[in-house]
Design a binder for these strands. Structure first.
Lengths: 249, 249
DNA sequence: GATCTTCATTAACCTGTGATAGGTCTGCAC
DNA sequence: GTGCAGACCTATCACAGGTTAATGAAGATC
């Protein structure tokens, strides 16, 4: 079994994410409100399950550090990854609004999550309209990510899909402050990539090789770097705009 | 060019959707708030564009009658339909929250839409927290639909995809009060189906034939009926729950 | 009623991707 | 050390689904 521990609240005043340029600061009052509502930090080991499909929603989380992913499975085990989650992403908002989780969330690396109780969501709307707006913003933003993903899976070829995924993850990791030099950590195995793109593992491997040989990506030891971003974008037919600064809970 | 006309407000007191079992009534006060905010009705002819990708968001709509769909295209014209829109669905919430439309919306049949101005969204959060909550609910619900769609496109075979789409649309049309006898209108062409499922038109046709011959669906003259829903579900590996009653704007 | 368009359909052929089966390398438990 | 497991990589073969092209039916349009 996977370890999952709930630590006492880490002070939001020292939040490592909020200072990043990708996030909106919010008013001091809003920040204290959020800080007060935070129940603590949940730690989940790489490979552990954060939310299990089918269960009623109990908590909502903000991913504080580490990587995770959201997925669904068919009854015979085929898996589709809908989205990769990076620090600052909300986990479980969708399930929170509706009845129960219709997807699972799994930790890709060791992960820590700021935890909020079920009642917090409603409190937000009642006492802090701008934060309620921000929640909807995040929901809309997440839908946009899935929109982009389905375009890839439905209409891009294998090479285009891999290229688009690499560009997409690279930009997002950069925005989350994870870029070091010209590289980002890339904790996904090829199986994850395959399951995110609707490909088989073998073909995913072939296609990654192809992009490597073409000099378009460097991917080794859990690290990704892109030599010529513009060229990779061209291969991917990928021209999505970078996200604007986003709210943080 | 396609005709698009804005009619004077149709009285919300006679809303044909709200009495349906699929929708939540809301308080009288909320209903008047919405009614007051409504600018009028937009009519768009079948095939017309409701929202164009790339443009800044101006209005938000509720689909009052008719069918529409949300899609994105790649630069070379390949199209992916993300979602089919039925009466009661919100159009343009995602674009409204973020900067501009990152997808287009096109009318599948003649369509009429209740129109709201940009400022309404913010007013909702400020003065009617429960409605703000409802907006997020709808955003989360829409994301869930795309989640289901990407599972199909990524991991289901062609037969499974078609079967799942038929079941899905059938249930939704039923909830929107469109079922007559054991049939629903089905205004999608095979090209729409193909673009929703990431298939070619030709293969879509082959596969529909297959399901017809197996006696699982009847689809002709823009009308769909399903003989044995349970059997079709089994083919599709589709076991999504019906949606709970939903808010209406 | 001649001409166009759109949509559905079918056939013939081809290819991108899947399936299967193997291999290597690395890290880790004992 | 030895054994094992997980991730990556390669080769070969098979097929689901794509591509191209042609046909017919049903409405529009003139």
């Amino acid at each position: 079994m996977r370890a999952a521990t709930l630590d006492p609240p880490f002070p939001c005043t020292h939040c490592p994410l909020r200072p990043l340029p990708g996030f909106i600061d919010g008013s001091a009052e809003e920040r204290t409100f959020i800080a007060r509502r935070k129940l603590g930090q949940l730690h989940v080991v790489a490979g552990g399950t954060i939310l299990p499909e089918g269960q009623p929603a109990q908590y909502m989380f903000t991913l504080l550090s580490g990587w995770a992913f959201r997925y669904k499975t068919l009854s015979d085990g085929r898996r589709q990854i809908m989205n990769v989650l990076l620090p600052g992403d909300l986990v479980g908002l969708q399930s929170h609004m509706l009845d129960s989780h219709r997807h699972s969330v799994e930790a890709l690396t060791d992960v820590s999550l700021c935890t909020f109780g079920r009642e917090t969501v409603w409190a937000i709307y009642k006492s802090h309209p701008p934060l309620g707006f921000a929640l909807t913003w995040l929901a809309a933003h997440e839908e946009r990510l899935v929109d982009d993903a389905i375009l890839s899976v439905g209409r891009r070829s294998a090479v285009e899909r891999i290229a688009a995924l690499m560009v997409h993850i690279f930009k997002r990791a950069e925005a989350a402050g994870l870029k070091q030099g010209d590289a980002i950590p890339f904790p996904l195995t090829q199986e994850h990539v395959a399951d995110a793109l609707g490909l088989s593992i073998v073909h995913t491997n072939r296609t990654i090789q192809h992009l490597r040989r073409a000099g378009l990506i460097r991917l080794a030891d859990g690290t990704l770097s892109i030599g010529d971003l513009r060229a990779l974008r061209r291969v991917a037919l990928y021209w999505e705009q970078p996200a604007e600064p986003r709210p943080l809970f």
